[in-house]
Design a protein around this nucleic acid. Structure first.
Lengths: 351, 351
DNA sequence: TTGTAGGCGTTATCAT
DNA sequence: ATGATAACGCCTACAA
């Protein structure tokens, strides 16, 4: 590991001069000296120590991204958005999974602070009753005092800028779409208990139902994962079937889809199913959903984190647009019984 | 940002003493002093600077993971495996996407070295003819000289320990399974040109075909992504249909599945489809595949990177086992025509 | 234009 | 048991 000292010795110049040419300083250096330094640096394949540099500048070109679970395509898409922009600017991405634990988040925040990270992005939603929220806020404040920018990508009740999309409206929109297909008896499969995102989406569902004078109380416990949807499907299939089901997210929607079909229920023939987010798997199975600007969330957050303060960068909160994406797991309502066979035939033909 | 100097002043002790109690040194410190230091540290919520520490210790508790694309569930699963174990030990994960560019990999390696990372894990496969391979190897050597452990999770022609699974055998096994179903005219959809992983899998396919006295030459260009599979499906559907198709990975397999069905081809009634990897989406759509030990790859690699050298840790290369996972996109071969309707009926019933 | 030297926060060596 | 103090590698006034 060559250091500036090595270079300066090799080139026969002072460390200061070596430093100046090797870090794009604006301080003038004669062409001759410059060349000698450059040559010496090339010879030993010099690479500056980020840690030494960080120690003096009080800042590391690191952006931390705290997600729930990187295997969840929701977070993966966000992480990629972040990396796309910070990587291009020479920053590195520190990725941490917090598994929805505020305690772990605080720990990661602490570590990021210890590294003098340039910024940190919270990708997960928060809980309505979070006993550790204040503690998190304190940790966040300290982080900011240490010079890092912090931004959240979901509702958190935290004093920090956010970039989000409207979960409530997204849920409202899919629900409204399903209603427009003629369905009346529509169920909602909930997300994890107490999470803002779950609540907002449920809220959107209920609002759309009420706006159409329909009963918004048909709800099932769920989660954010495929398995939750699959299990719920079996429970649903065992009772009186709804005409359509809106799931809190795509994974649950897909779980419902598969569970229902495995239980012998035709989707969308007998029951329509829709999700929210439009992660890749949703495309794969043709799930009707609403496209959330996941990648853009990451890009935008990264932009905020790296923006020069004088940049006139948009401050406060940013809300990105979503878009309804109808696919083939939802269908127009038909009269029961009679339509049943016809639907089956059409479904077959469509393949 | 409180520093040791602050603490020492507050507690009325030397910086050395403060340091000793605050970093679990074995150096003896009297109970009284210890308490004073602890109190002072608590008052100001002291957190040691990782960068200062790194400067003197020449090492950062960071492990870098260089993947192709974090949105690809293949890599996401590996990244999670890594994070699960390094996180538990107090290390942080630096994630970088290299998009199959050796040049980007070299850049990331350089950065990781500048950070004095403890280890770096290469998750992507290499190319058969990589003009930059030597350059990468040099960079890798330097990284290792700097004290970092390096491990690769795929064939790379690099002088460094690897932990992998047997791509060739995996492809052989699915192919063999498909053959056992009675299929004869079986196609293979290739991965990206020149990638070791692509080649090994194709090799396994061909070997299995030849072992069964079947023609191994029915191949289609593909890639590693859903879209490639989908497009290929349309081309395949336009010609004489094979009885079965083995895809280089799950995403392509799913693309084939959807493309075929959209083109009116019944899967598995008319054509069977299988993939490799068993990423989550494969489970979602019921794709027949072989389960690759992705998560374990990450876990094992992380273990190697964090292992004490004296640990008697397994050196050299490690090959983890895979497992055939039949699902519902493959079916036994029937006599054509006559069986057609019957198959359709059964397919419906099975749901 | 070049060089000297102080300091960033820790750890570790060497006295005391 | 405690405390100075010299690194670690780099940047940056300040001096020359």
């Amino acid at each position: 590991m060559a250091s500036l000292a090595d270079i300066s010795a090799r080139a026969g110049v002072s460390i200061a001069t070596a430093s100046r040419v090797l870090n794009g300083s604006s301080h003038p250096v004669s062409a001759a000296m410059r060349q000698r330094v450059l040559d010496a640096a090339a010879e030993v394949d010099y690479a500056p120590s980020f840690v030494a540099r960080a120690l003096v500048k009080g800042r590391t070109p690191i952006v931390g991204v705290i997600v729930g679970d990187i295997v969840d395509p929701y977070f993966a898409e966000i992480a990629r958005g972040v990396e796309d922009v910070v990587g291009r600017k020479g920053y590195l991405t520190m990725l941490s999974s917090a598994h929805r634990s505020t305690e772990l988040e605080i720990g990661h925040l602490r570590a990021l602070r210890a590294y003098q990270a340039t910024g940190v992005i919270f990708a997960s939603s928060g809980f309505l009753h979070d006993t550790r929220r204040e503690e998190l806020q304190r940790s966040l404040d300290e982080t900011r005092e240490a010079g890092a920018k912090v931004v959240a990508l979901a509702h958190r009740e935290l004093d920090c800028p956010t970039v989000t999309f409207d979960n409530r409206a997204a849920a409202y929109d899919v629900t409204d779409y399903v209603i427009s297909l003629g369905h009346r008896r529509i169920a909602f499969v909930d997300g994890p208990e107490g999470l803002y995102t779950s609540l907002e989406r449920r809220d959107g569902f209920e609002a759309a139902m009420r706006a159409a004078d329909l009963d918004p109380t048909l709800r099932f416990e769920g989660g954010f994962e495929y398995e939750a949807g699959y299990e719920t499907a079996r429970r649903i299939a065992a009772g009186r079937l709804p005409e359509a089901i809106v799931a809190v997210n795509d994974d649950v929607g897909i779980g419902l889809l598969m569970g229902l079909r495995d239980a012998g229920v035709d989707v969308p023939g007998t029951v329509s199913v829709a999700g929210i987010d439009d992660t890749r798997p949703a495309r794969y199975v043709g799930l009707t959903t609403v496209s959330a600007p996941l990648h853009e969330l990451g890009i935008t957050a990264a932009g905020l984190v790296l923006a020069d303060d004088e940049d006139g960068a948009p401050t406060g909160d940013i809300v990105l647009p979503h878009r309804l994406t109808p696919r083939s797991t939802t269908a127009r309502r038909r009269a029961r019984a009679a339509g049943q066979r016809r639907r089956a035939a059409r479904a077959r033909a469509r393949r």
